[in-house]
């Protein structure tokens, strides 16, 4: 009977891996220039530096962009799982902590100050994200404990404040305004290996929640019950909040603010495999990556050569799926 539940968990993971692989393959193969799986394998084996146009498209454009989309999707969706379950609030997404707004402010400064080349942009975005986290953290700290509700409120409040500052900057920005708007909408267009290197920084943080899977399960009963059952609640909260903040800041710094994935992927996965984190975290990771990959694929192919902002596509793909699953209830 125990094995029944675990097998279905393993089955879920296996299924998620298959879907993930299929999405990865489709994202790499399809585009304005389609590459057959055979050619993909060939280019991959031959390594970068090939002179064939296909090889250049694959190594210089397609692969980094797809990797970036998958990494950002995974990071946002894992951050969403963490924050929804820490706040015990289904409306929470990675952007409520104010980290994303802070990152956006950093990036906006970068654009206004014409520091828009890559390292600066990312560095400013990361600084903005972590600075907001620090402010929110200090606001929510009482007698050595983090008050999770104060944190939520402070995060939302500071988001509004930072957004107001961004609006002022945009008004003053003149011809840079377009760049700011475009960046805020979120996109993987024109991103390449340097962004991927930044995004890879998020990878180890995606694994962190797996080490806290039991603690996160127990925290679903509330902080007090978790204390009673022996969980070091403050330590778990510290580690998990910082993890979610790093994931969000890294994702926003390379791609702008892409909505919906961090809110809805955790819900979809919870409906499919239940709330237990040993299953929820890895499947949400793969699912978020796959959804973002497909959304980016659609964004660059549907109206090619024009691009639809990827945040728009995630919403178009995710919303009907979510409503369908909500109505169907748990399988």
């Amino acid at each position: 009977m125990t094995s029944g539940a675990r097998t279905s968990g393993r089955l879920g993971v296996a299924l998620a891996v298959v879907i993930f692989a299929a999405c990865l393959l489709a994202s790499l193969a399809l585009g304005p220039v389609s590459l057959s799986p055979l050619k993909l394998a060939h280019y991959l084996m031959a390594g970068p530096g090939g002179s064939a146009p296909g090889s250049i498209i694959f190594w210089q454009i397609r692969l980094p962009r797809v990797l970036l989309a998958f990494l950002v999707g995974a990071a946002l969706s894992v951050a969403g799982v963490i924050l929804q379950d820490l706040f015990l609030n289904p409306l929470t997404d990675p952007y409520v902590t104010g980290v994303s707004s802070g990152a956006a402010l950093g990036a906006t400064f970068g654009i206004v100050l014409h520091l828009a080349e890559l390292p600066w942009m990312t560095i400013l975005a990361l600084i903005g994200g972590f600075a907001t986290l620090a402010v929110v953290w200090i606001a929510a700290r009482r007698r050595g404990k983090i008050d999770i509700y104060v944190l939520l409120l402070a995060g939302v409040t500071i988001s509004y404040l930072v957004t107001a500052v961004i609006a002022v900057l945009m008004i003053r920005a003149g011809e840079d305004m377009d760049a700011i708007v475009y960046w805020l909408l979120g996109s993987f267009s024109g991103r390449s290996w340097p962004e991927v290197k930044v995004a890879l920084f998020a990878l180890p943080f995606m694994i962190v929640p797996l080490f806290f899977a039991k603690e996160m399960d127990i925290l679903l009963q509330g902080e007090k019950r978790a204390l009673e059952l022996g969980v070091d609640v403050e330590r778990a909260k510290r580690v998990l909040l910082v993890t979610a903040a790093v994931l969000t800041a890294v994702a926003v710094s390379v791609s702008g603010i892409i909505g919906f994935v961090g809110l809805v992927v955790p819900h979809i996965v919870r409906l499919l495999v239940g709330p237990s984190h040993m299953r929820l975290v890895p499947i949400a990771l793969l699912g978020g990556a796959a959804l973002m990959g497909i959304a980016d694929l659609l964004s660059r192919t549907m109206l090619a050569p024009a691009e639809i902002p990827v945040g728009v596509v995630t919403t178009f793909v995710g919303a009907p799926l979510f409503v369908y699953l909500l109505r169907r209830g748990r399988a």
Binding site: T2, A5, K214, E215, D217, I218, L220, Q221, G222, R225, L229, G230, V231, R270, G274, P275, S276, R330
Partner: peptide
């Protein structure tokens, strides 16, 4: 008072007690 609104099985809830 005990609130748990997430869809966990009784086995999973009871096993949480062995955490410590």
């Amino acid at each position: 008072h005990f609130t748990l609104e997430f869809d966990l099985s009784v086995r999973e809830v009871v096993e949480m007690g062995a955490y410590c």
